[in-house]
């Protein structure tokens, strides 16, 4: 979806402000939100792409004015309600009012913690040969799905060069919408800075994205 989360190339957000000796969490509730998201994801309530999509659908004015973990919280609560794991009444009351729904991987207890400290695997067997080779020129498609996609707006319609092939991976566009993993070839595609930003762009800049094969046409 063409949401405010797709920020590459936008102006007006001001300077980057590094924080010396930044703590891991600024408030205790942030750590609880992180842990709940990891736990409920690991228990099978949602996949990582679905959780990203819910954060993207936070209304733009709220998205832009909420802290990072606030967005995680808003996305998590809405997602769990819509997936039927809890109700708005329960959230408002702060207590369970009916039995829980079965989780694909069961309750998230202490015994589960070790397994989530290793990143998940996203590579899948290839259903077909790769269409593109290293060095091929490709054009990012001019597509504007209203659902989840990982093709940022700032490269759409532009021509780049395939630099790396990462194998076949879970396709976020379908996984997020719970329409299956639908594995697709994944490439690093490099764009020239001035192709993206015009003649005034930095002549020494090259930008790459990791692009799934359905995002690309031969050029």
């Amino acid at each position: 979806m063409n949401g405010v989360h797709d920020m590459g190339g936008m102006d007006g957000f001001g300077k980057v402000e590094p924080e010396p000796n930044e703590p891991v969490f600024h408030e205790e509730w942030e750590s609880r939100v992180l842990a709940m998201v990891r736990a409920m994801g690991a228990a099978g309530a949602f996949n990582i792409d679905t959780s990203r999509f819910y954060r993207e659908t936070i209304p733009p004015h709220v998205y832009l004015s909420s802290s990072y973990y606030k967005k995680w919280f808003l996305g998590l609560e809405e997602m769990l309600i819509e997936k039927g794991y809890l109700t708005r009444e329960e959230v408002a009351a702060g207590h369970a009012m009916q039995p829980g729904k079965a989780l694909k991987h069961g309750k998230f207890d202490l015994g589960q913690v070790e397994r989530i400290m290793v990143r998940g695997k996203f590579a899948r067997p290839a259903p077909a040969p790769a269409k593109f080779n290293i060095g091929d020129r490709v054009r990012a498609k001019n597509i504007h799905p209203t659902t989840h996609t990982r093709l940022p707006r700032y490269v759409r319609g532009h021509v780049g060069v395939v630099e790396l092939n990462h194998g076949c991976h879970v396709f976020p566009d379908t996984a997020a919408m719970e329409r299956g993993e639908n594995p697709q070839w994944l490439y690093t595609v490099v764009f020239d800075g001035r192709d993206l930003w015009g003649e005034d762009g930095d002549p020494t800049l090259k930008v790459s994205i990791d692009a799934f094969e359905p995002y690309l046409d031969p050029a």
């Binding site: 996203f122 994944l186 020494t204 800049l205 799934f212």
Partner: peptide, 10 residues
């Protein structure tokens, strides 16, 4: 300057 936009699980 090469900027890597992490748009997938890489």
């Amino acid at each position: 300057i090469r900027v890597w936009d992490s748009t997938a699980e890489t």
